[in-house]
């Protein structure tokens, strides 16, 4: 093995000349270790400062606020006295994300299954590439497309839901208007988080050992039974964390939602009607017109979004980590 290595630039002095004693860490290593450790520390510093600066800069607005920050739906931070709260933002963020998850999780898992175990091998590689491309499309383009081209098609769906499922409160539409709704924003979000979900689940599906698949088939399982018997149990933690990472992305998505929703500060349960707002979209839309307290209020809402996505992402990582330990034991 060693004979195949090219000698490196400078000739290494023979051990006789150099001796076998000396500093245990040589200068080159010290510098390199210092640089690389510094880079690692910088990441910690960045994360810490994100938290610190958001908290510090949120305080002025929170102190000036005369409404309840958590339960108020109003957003007038630059009035005096300032009145603002995140209730409408929470509702809109959660509703768009729920719509996105309901659509994207099953479809994402279906795509992953299709690529990993149903499609012919050669087609599968190409299809994997295509779904990855979907992930590379910038979100502003999703927003434009959702507004100009998806909306006209979705209006029919909205009407249909109102006509046939209108007895379910969320599908009721009393306005007769079906554009710029939470439903449409949720559908666009679903398309945007699909690649995240399907890429991660696909990775786990491919890792399912061939032995387990053959064990199921040899017992006389149909392909679907094999999927349920061998693939899903093995891939469950991966599927859960994929869904949570997708959720994290949906919660924080800004521009596409800002373009599609017709921003309003109320809690409207009719998701096919225009209206709704999310943390991220609200920040982008209000930023350039906000005064000092307005900016601070937006920072405060951003802090809440930061904490929510942090919790979701840490949860996803925890699920993956548990799995790593599990498979390490085998």
């Amino acid at each position: 093995m060693s004979t195949t290595l090219e000698p490196t630039g400078t000739p290494v002095p023979s051990s006789a000349a150099r001796g076998i004693t000396g500093a245990s860490v040589r200068p080159g290593d010290r510098v390199f270790l210092g640089l690389s450790r510094g880079a690692g520390l910088l990441i910690l510093l960045t994360m810490a400062s994100i938290a610190i600066f958001l908290v510090v800069k949120a305080i002025p607005a929170l102190q000036a606020n005369t409404a309840n920050f958590l339960t108020s739906t109003a957003w007038f931070p630059d009035q005096s006295p300032a009145v603002f709260g995140i209730a409408a933002l929470v509702f809109g963020t959660v509703m768009t994300s729920i719509v996105a998850m309901v659509l994207a999780v099953p479809v994402g898992i279906g795509i992953a299954l299709f690529i990993a175990h149903y499609a012919p091998r050669r087609l599968a590689t190409a299809l994997g590439f295509v779904t990855d491309l979907l992930a590379a499309v910038p979100s502003i383009i999703f927003g434009m497309w959702g507004l100009q081209f998806l909306t006209p098609h979705m209006e029919g769906l909205g009407e249909w839901l109102n006509t046939y499922l209108g007895f379910i409160p969320i599908f009721t539409n009393t306005l007769g208007l079906y554009s710029k709704s939470i439903l449409i924003a949720g559908v666009v979000l679903a398309i945007m988080i699909l690649p995240t979900i399907s890429a991660i689940t696909r990775e786990v599906f491919v890792q399912v050992p061939r032995d387990h698949i053959e064990a199921a088939l040899a017992l006389g399982a149909t392909r679907w039974e094999m999927v349920r018997l061998s693939i899903f149990p093995f891939a469950k933690p991966g599927m859960i964390s994929a869904a949570m990472l997708g959720l994290g992305r949906a919660l924080g998505e800004t521009i596409a939602v800002a373009l599609i929703l017709s921003a309003s500060y109320d809690i409207n349960r009719h998701i096919t009607e225009p209206g709704g707002n999310t943390f991220a979209a609200n920040i982008a839309l209000r930023w350039n017109e906000a005064g000092p307290i307005g900016l601070s209020a937006l920072v405060a809402s951003g802090l809440v979004l930061f904490v929510i996505t942090l919790v979701v992402n840490m949860g996803a990582r925890a699920v993956i980590a548990r799995r790593a330990e599990f498979s390490g034991a085998n």
Binding site: P209, D211, H212, E214, A215, A218, L219, P233, N330
Partner: peptide, 12 residues
């Protein structure tokens, strides 16, 4: 029925 080279019980 079939038994394989490497034992493959379902791990979960």
């Amino acid at each position: 029925g079939m038994v394989f080279q490497r034992p493959n019980p379902f791990p979960t």
